[in-house]
Simulated scan of single mutants.
Amino acid sequence: MSGAIGLAATAHYLPERWLSAAEIGAAAAIPEQVIVEKFGLRGKHVAAPDEHVSDLAVAAASRLLGEHGVDPASVGAVVYYGSTWKDYMVWQAAPAIAHRLGCANAYAVEYDNVSMGTPVALRFARALLVAEPDLGSILLVAACRESYLLDYGNARSRFMFNFGDGAVAGLLTAGADRNLLLGSHAITDGSFALQVKVPAGGSVEPASHASVDGRRHFLDVADPSAMKDGLDEVSLPNFVAVAEGALARSGARLEDVSYLCGIHMKRSMHEQIVAALGLAPSRAAYLDDTGHMSGVDPLLALDRAVRAGEVVDGDLVLLLAAGTGYTWAASVVRWGPA
């Protein structure tokens, strides 16, 4: 298995503060029962005011390195793939994270991403290790602090009220003999590209007194009805298509999947996806106590499932995600010895 790439370790970090469904409902003027049942959210973690994306990522990665006895100096590359909203504008988090972790021999790289982050990051890092096996290992880190980008008074953005904060880390190694990372697949539909964004702060609408007064520095949806109608038509078929594509590249089929690690979404869509994939509900993670954390979710779900004994040796794990832009993506991991 000298050319195989494996997921040697994972770890996560969740901020101490937990915002309950009742508190979210009160802020958004939505009944608590709707938050719990329709949004599928019992609560979510929220970062402290002085706890930023780089801090969250360092906390998750430090846990990984410590738990598995990994020498930071042995890491070949550090890749940040989390939320695009970081400590500073026009700034890379990866070099700062690598420095704070003591990964002195790693080069740092990042690609700003949104909710499809985990399967895309796994695909990217696997390709990088295949091309450059002498790197030895790649430390993937992602974090999200997008709870601070929510305006609970803006009904257009209510589908994002599940956004919470947290971080995850994963260590990919070359020449692996367990937890092999197999195939990946993705589909992009750019017709949704301008629907979800923070309207102000970029070059199209630079920050100004008017943009601040107009609360245009929070997440917003340009046309909620058009976005919903468009996504309702294509989301489920695209989720299934990327799953099938990643499995085909892994020499497997839908019926071979043992466990699903997806992103947090409304409960009805989650249930439709689980049914379409032919899985029992108990074999799919549902992050109703954390909410959605940009690119963090699927790897966090896998880390928690492994720690809880829900994923065991021999399981074929499907990591499935979609992100505004709009991209659907999937990657496959065979857990346990090769």
Score class of each variant (00 low, 15 high):
A60L: 08
T324Y: 08
K266M: 13
A26L: 09
H99R: 15
D112R: 11
G166W: 02
A143C: 13
L231N: 02
A8C: 07
A96P: 07
A207Q: 10
N238W: 02
I187W: 01
P31N: 04
R267Y: 13
H270T: 14
T188C: 12
E132S: 15
S157R: 04
G295W: 00
V221R: 04
A280Y: 05
V46F: 15
G336P: 02
S20V: 10
S235I: 10
N113R: 14
K86Y: 02
C103H: 00
G76T: 02
A125T: 09
P133M: 08
A59R: 07
C144K: 01
A27M: 14
K197I: 15
K266P: 06
G309D: 07
V257A: 07
Y148G: 11
V204G: 05
T118Q: 13
M265Q: 12
A94C: 09
L41R: 08
P31L: 01
Y80E: 01
L172T: 11
V53I: 12
L172H: 11
A11F: 06
D313W: 04
L122R: 06
R283T: 03
L302M: 12
H68W: 10
G170S: 12
I30L: 00
H209T: 05
S235P: 05
H217E: 10
L129N: 03
T118S: 15
D256K: 09
T10W: 03
A207S: 15
G190K: 08
A22D: 12
F124R: 09
F218P: 07
I138V: 12
L180A: 07
G309T: 11
N154K: 13
A4K: 09
L181Y: 05
A338R: 06
G6K: 04
P199C: 03
I273T: 05
P237F: 11
V75Y: 04
S184C: 13
A4M: 10
G202D: 00
H52F: 14
V333S: 00
D313I: 02
G40Y: 10
H68E: 13
A94H: 02
E146G: 09
A174N: 05
A9C: 01
G3H: 10
M89D: 10
A48M: 11
G295K: 02
G136P: 14
R253L: 11
V70N: 02
L181K: 03
D303F: 03
A226C: 14
D55W: 01
A248G: 12
R158G: 11
S83H: 04
A200P: 03
L300A: 05
K197G: 15
V311K: 02
A11R: 04
V240K: 01
F159P: 15
A22I: 09
L7Y: 00
L128Q: 08
E51N: 06
G117E: 04
P281R: 03
S203Q: 11
A301T: 02
D220K: 14
D165M: 05
S203R: 03
E67V: 03
H68R: 09
A285D: 11
D165L: 08
S225N: 15
S268F: 12
R215M: 15
V242N: 01
A131H: 14
D297H: 05
C144R: 03
A57K: 05
L181S: 01
A252W: 06
K86L: 04
V70K: 01
V257M: 06
A131E: 12
E32N: 09
A47L: 07
A47V: 07
S157E: 12
G214M: 10
H12G: 04
A21W: 10
G183C: 09
